[in-house]
Simulated scan of single mutants.
Amino acid sequence: MMRKKIIAGNWKMNMTPTAAVELTNTLKPLVANEEVDVVFCVPAIDIIPVVKACEGTNIQVGAENMYFEESGAYTGEISPEMLTDAGVKYVVLGHSERREYFGETNEDVNKKVLKAFEHNITPIMCCGETLDQREQGITMDFIRQQVKVGFLNVTVDQAKTAIIAYEPIWAIGTGKTATADQAEEVCKGIRDCIAEIYDRDTAEQIRIQYGGSVNGKNAAELFAQPDIDGGLVGGASLKEDFGEIVHW
């Protein structure tokens, strides 16, 4: 089956609200491509101005994180209802930086994934191995655990609409990219894991992105792979190069 590609920019902790609107206005004509889903995942403080700047375009806006409670005494956190009210359609969950710097566990990510679905926000659930894990030959063991715990109690219908982003930690912001074959091997392994949890039909519908130093030069080869359905793009999403990736 033909899955629609999804190219999402993860801005990380960059762009003031003023700069975010300027960047959005620069990118709007460059990412106008109805054949793919285009998402800007932006810092929380930028969401409202970027949603406004994207009105009438093909760009959807996503958040970079979300808490798994509805409201309450969780200083500094952002609830799913806050995101939906602001116009958010997607949320990045379990990024390796959240796991490494802020101690997020697979169980935390699972709670967030379930809560996102409750509020009709599409989760972009990240998974990926370190260089040590790859060299030890345990890449798929590690990633399968992330996927299996991350999708605990997610229904079949929900799983079909989810997005998984495979991001080898050793390729994030390093300039090193997994080869197209390496990326395809893991993305196929993730699809097989989803088939085990649910069924082959669900696995064929779920979209799996590759992320990790994606740029205008390597996007075409990566996205040509049968199990890679687009990219979660870091640094290049903050530049005009993002247009080249969207039009690979």
Rank of each mutant, 00 (worst) to 15 (best):
Ile163Ala: 09
Arg3Lys: 15
Ala32Cys: 10
Thr26Lys: 01
Lys4Tyr: 03
Thr84Trp: 04
Lys52Ala: 02
Met1Gly: 13
Pro17Ser: 08
Gln158Trp: 03
Ile124Arg: 03
Pro168Lys: 06
Ile208Met: 13
Glu104His: 05
Lys28Tyr: 04
Asn10Cys: 08
Ile6Asn: 09
Gln209His: 15
Gly9Glu: 05
Cys54Gly: 04
Ser237Trp: 07
Asp201Lys: 15
Ile169Lys: 12
Trp170Met: 13
Arg191Cys: 15
Ile169Asp: 11
Ile245Ala: 04
Gly62Asn: 03
Arg134Asp: 07
Val233Arg: 10
Gly72Lys: 02
Pro29Trp: 06
Glu240Ser: 15
Glu196Val: 15
Ser79Trp: 08
Pro226Ile: 06
Leu131Glu: 09
Glu35Ser: 12
His95Val: 03
Gly216Cys: 15
Gln209Phe: 13
Glu64Tyr: 05
Leu83His: 04
Ala86Arg: 11
Gly234Cys: 12
Val21Pro: 00
Ile208Ser: 15
Tyr210Pro: 13
Val109Asp: 06
Phe102Thr: 02
Gln133Leu: 04
Val214Lys: 14
Cys127Leu: 07
Ala162Gln: 05
Ile208Lys: 15
Leu222Trp: 11
Met125Phe: 08
Gln182Pro: 02
Glu196Pro: 14
Cys41Ala: 14
Asn218His: 15
Asp227Asn: 10
Pro43Gly: 05
Thr26Met: 05
Gly62Lys: 03
Ala171Ile: 13
Asn218Ala: 15
Ser96Ala: 14
Gly103Ser: 02
Gly62Gln: 01
Pro17Gly: 07
Ser237Asn: 12
Asp201Tyr: 12
Gln209Lys: 13
Ala236Ser: 14
Met125Gly: 04
Arg99Cys: 04
Pro17Cys: 08
Glu100Lys: 13
Asn153Pro: 01
Ile59Arg: 00
Asn110Val: 08
Ile6Leu: 12
